[in-house]
Simulated scan of single mutants.
Amino acid sequence: MPWVHSTGAPQPLFPAPRRPRSWGAFGQATKHLGPTSVYVVVADPDAHYARTVAAGARIVMPLTDTDYGSRDHIAGDAEGNLWCFGTYAPELPSP
């Protein structure tokens, strides 16, 4: 399944395999966990979405304006993980 790097260059996506027993204690401790999700901040969500669609990704949520001011879209990979892209980037408080 092709994927689009944030630079715009198509990249192959190699999903991680399910946790095999050979992963020992870690594999046993995480065997019941499901897929995960990742949020990636992008500068131009419209262009990123267009490249994602053109690459043939499975779109879970089309480009959407949220009520908190972000512009996001979500794609799913072959392992069931969610890849969220958008402009939401809260500032951390000063120490």
Rank of each mutant, 00 (worst) to 15 (best):
S37K: 06
Y68G: 01
A25C: 03
P17Q: 12
R19T: 04
A16Q: 11
G76K: 05
P20K: 04
P12D: 14
L33A: 10
A9R: 13
G24P: 03
R71W: 04
P2C: 07
F85G: 00
G69H: 01
E91I: 07
V4E: 05
A25I: 11
G34Q: 11
F26G: 10
A54H: 06
A47T: 10
A57T: 01
L92G: 12
D72K: 01
R18Y: 06
P45R: 03
L63D: 03
L63Y: 02
I59G: 02
G8A: 10
G56Y: 04
A50G: 00
D44V: 03
A9C: 03
N81L: 01
G80Y: 11
L82T: 04
G27Y: 03
P2M: 15
G8E: 12
H32S: 12
P90R: 08
F85W: 11
L82G: 02
F14R: 15
H32F: 11
G56Q: 08
A25W: 06
T30E: 00
L33H: 11
A75F: 07
D67W: 07
G86P: 05
G24I: 02
R21I: 10
S94E: 15
Y49M: 00
A47Y: 01
A47S: 09
Y68M: 03
A50H: 04
D77F: 12
L92V: 13
K31L: 09
D65M: 06
L82R: 13
L92W: 13
P12H: 08
A9H: 13
E79Q: 13
S6A: 14
V42L: 06
P20F: 09
T7R: 06
Y88M: 10
T66K: 05
S37V: 00
V60A: 12
Q28T: 08
L63E: 01
G80S: 08
P90L: 10
H32R: 14
G76Y: 03
L63S: 01
V38G: 02
A9N: 09
C84F: 10
A43H: 10
M1E: 14
S37L: 05
A47C: 01
E91V: 10
D46L: 04
A16R: 09
D77Q: 08
G34F: 05
H5F: 07
H48V: 07
V60N: 04
T66S: 11
P15G: 06
S94Y: 09
G56R: 02
T64P: 00
G34H: 07
P95Y: 05
V41M: 04
A75Y: 02
Q11D: 08
R51Y: 00
W3C: 11
T52D: 02
D72G: 02
A89R: 15
F14Q: 11
A43G: 05
M61S: 11
Q28R: 15
A55Q: 04
G34E: 09
T52H: 09
L82P: 00
D77N: 05
W3F: 15
W3R: 13
E79V: 00
T52C: 14
F26E: 13
L33F: 14
W3P: 00
G80N: 12
T30R: 02
E79K: 13
S22M: 07
Q28H: 13
L82A: 10
P45A: 09
Y39Q: 03
Y68K: 03
A16V: 08
A16D: 12
P45W: 08
P15C: 09
P95V: 12
P10L: 12
L63R: 07
L63T: 00
R19Y: 10
R19A: 14
W23F: 15
P17E: 15
Y49A: 08
V40N: 01
